[in-house]
Design a protein around this nucleic acid. Structure first.
Lengths: 159, 159
DNA sequence: AAATAATTTTGAATATTATTCTGATATTAC
DNA sequence: GTAATATCAGAATAATATTCAAAATTATTT
């Protein structure tokens, strides 16, 4: 993700973001009433927030239990030094099953959140993907037993 | 999060979920065309998915750089055994700055993702919140230097 | 400070979409 | 097989999105 910081957001923008984060299907009419302005003015603000890439996506949160994808795992790994940290992370991010990639400080280089059905297949997936681009030095997995509060993007199977 | 699994989703439901996950502001008319059915039928499906709590929320993804909240941290901690693991996790989840709470297997009990501006204030936040409900045995923090792929819910400041 | 330019907002008109409802059809249960 | 249930389509209506010109506001320049 490219960090850009020449974006100025005023109070109205933040209010719109808050409302749309709460419920992205909220109508312009409703927002207009909340903000005491015309629906058309709200619309213009929203369009600009989209254009400026402040709002990156409108999405539906889906109950993981409903689609039978309950097992997640976190992985930390050391990457080889021949390829840059960001390059490796970018490659990791391309893997469909990978939901999050964080470059972290400490003994390891990455923290990766992956959707998978079991820890063995997760290992296989990682090794397959990474043998091509880097040398795996260590993988430590942590199985998530229960998630109390989460914000994951579930991969709805095709067709 | 309560796990319920008496939900049956057919191909049309999954197609709707996929479309709405991609873009939750998609119109019923558009979905109806994609799925070759009437808008009213699509609407009925969507309403049922909402009622059955399959769709839990419609939300807008916001560029973290735009709202100047770039620093995240992961924490693992041991909880006391006097209070149940889930209870503690639930308490953790109530903290506004906490974005994710995972009960995990291994040496530690939780993996917590927190929005914060610096690691010192994060420590303070954790200690403040937890002194009331449990004994902190250890906190290990990992500062996220750069996020390549993420799916976090940003907390837009009030007013 | 006044004038100008640029941006934002408003309000009305129009286009599009959501929603409701009824009857028909299909699916499931018994 | 029949009844009960669920799903769907199509039309009518309500609500909303979108567009646009003019007014208002804000920022910039002189």
């Amino acid at each position: 993700m490219i960090i850009e910081n020449n974006i100025s957001l005023d109070k109205v923008d933040l209010a719109i973001l808050r409302l749309m984060q709460e419920n992205s299907r909220v109508s312009n009419v409703h927002m207009a009433k909340e903000l005491e302005m015309a629906p058309s003015a709200v619309l213009e603000r929203v369009k600009k927030l989209e254009q400026k890439n402040v709002i990156t996506q409108y999405t539906a949160r889906i109950n993981p239990a409903a689609v039978d994808l309950k097992l997640l795992a976190f992985i930390s790994m050391k990457a080889s030094h021949s390829i840059g940290c960001t390059t490796t992370a970018t490659e990791l991010a391309k893997i469909k099953e990978v939901q999050e990639v964080h470059i972290i400080a400490g003994d390891d280089c990455y923290l990766v959140k992956v959707r998978t059905t079991d820890s063995a297949s997760l290992m296989a997936l990682m090794r397959d993907s990474f043998s091509k681009i880097t040398t795996i030095q260590s993988i430590r997995t942590t199985i998530v037993l229960e998630t109390v509060k989460e914000d994951i993007q579930l991969l709805i199977p095709e067709k």
